[in-house]
């Protein structure tokens, strides 16, 4: 069974933080794209004009910590009521221990807190929400703090045209709890490890451990230069996967909820790239005004892209939303819920 359904549990608040440093693609990519026309075309296609980039001193957990502190302070949350902390990221502080446990301590939460990491990227927010709702559904759990952040600029080659202009860094915090509301929240979740090679960092973990050759730069047939501990992305295959699976899975969830496309007030997709999500919207027949994005100023922020997009578009009146995450794994999932009562806090910079 890949569907989950809950009633009376809600997202009560969302916060996000980004690093202060802004990288403008037009300037950043001059050397990578000596031809000005080609550079402009690439920026237009991926839809990313500028991105936020962390220094070596800031990790995903720092961005999530800042977002969590803002959420806890502004919403006057009693820290002793946070029973679960989930950190979803592909850029943890260390290989061991899990970053969520470090954050439990840093946030001053009780030792009774359940804390663990989830290693997911583009689908990570939807998966993280489904886990948070599952915990919140238990009588003994009061509040769940979902921390979703990534710093993909740390594992992307600056000399890889397929990814260098795309990614940005961000961290987010979402609070989930029982509210006794009438809201029904549904999820459907999917995996296809057969497509794992389309988006992968092959080196640096335990299948291919770091060694003297790990950082040898290699040039692929497209002229992209990267080493084995940097991201490889086959954009064409990821696009194929998105067209094949995502639209179908959204329709499945709508059927489960017994609602139609027209009943959804806002669609918030993982911010893969402009070309891909524009085409997906066209395929699903989503009215442009219902689609929210954060690509232009923040890029693809991996697992953080959905909550960051909510925060960037916080002036909108959110109601019935469809959240859809898809990508690395391959892994994808959707969440249909109503967030009209959620506090969406303003973006912070650290």
């Amino acid at each position: 069974m890949n569907t989950l359904s809950f009633q009376g549990i809600d997202i009560v608040a969302v916060a996000a933080s980004v690093p202060k440093t802004i990288v403008r693609n037009e300037e950043f990519a001059k050397q990578l794209f000596p031809d000005e026309v080609s550079l402009q075309k690439t920026i237009e296609t991926i839809g990313v004009k500028e991105r936020r980039v962390t220094s070596n001193l800031i990790c995903s957990s720092d961005l999530c910590f800042a977002a969590a502190e803002k959420l806890i302070t502004e919403c006057e949350i009693d820290r002793s009521e946070i029973d679960v902390v989930i950190f979803v990221s592909q850029t943890p502080d260390y290989r061991i221990p899990a970053t969520a446990i470090l954050l439990q301590n840093k946030l001053g939460l009780s030792k009774q807190t359940i804390a663990f990491d989830v290693n997911l990227g583009c689908s990570g927010y939807v998966y993280g929400l489904s886990i948070a709702y599952s915990f919140a559904n238990n009588a003994g759990v009061r509040k769940v703090l979902l921390l979703v952040g990534d710093t993909p600029t740390k594992f992307t080659s600056e000399n890889d045209k397929s990814s260098a202009l795309l990614f940005g860094d961000a961290g987010t915090a979402t609070l989930i709890q029982k509210t006794c509301s009438e809201t029904v929240t549904s999820f459907n979740l999917f995996s296809d490890g057969g497509g794992s090679s389309s988006l992968i960092i092959k080196g640096g973990a335990y299948r291919n451990q770091s060694n003297a050759d790990s950082f040898t730069l290699e040039t692929d047939e497209d002229g992209n230069v990267r080493h084995s501990e940097q991201l490889y992305m086959n954009g064409g295959e990821i696009f194929n996967f998105t067209l094949r699976e995502v639209s179908k899975s959204i329709h499945q969830l709508l059927e489960l909820q017994r609602i139609e496309i027209a009943d959804i007030d806002q669609f918030v997709f993982h911010q893969a790239n402009k070309f891909m999500i524009d085409f997906l919207c066209k395929k699903i027949k989503i009215a442009p005004e219902k689609f929210l994005n954060s690509l232009e100023n923040f890029g693809n922020t991996s697992a953080a892209s959905i909550p960051l997009t909510l925060v960037v578009n916080r002036e909108r009146n959110f109601n019935q939303v469809m959240l859809s995450g898809f990508g690395v794994g391959l892994s994808w999932g959707n969440c249909c819920t109503n967030i009209s009562n959620a506090k969406i806090l303003n973006l912070i910079e650290i």
Partner: peptide, 27 residues
């Protein structure tokens, strides 16, 4: 086809022929 134009062709073929082509075949 470049990496970018592969995306365009995948979109064109999906839209007009309801068919998905392998990116490596297009390459």
């Amino acid at each position: 086809l470049t990496s970018m134009s592969i995306l365009s062709v995948i979109a064109l073929v999906d839209e007009n022929f309801d068919k998905q082509l392998n990116a490596s075949d297009l390459k």
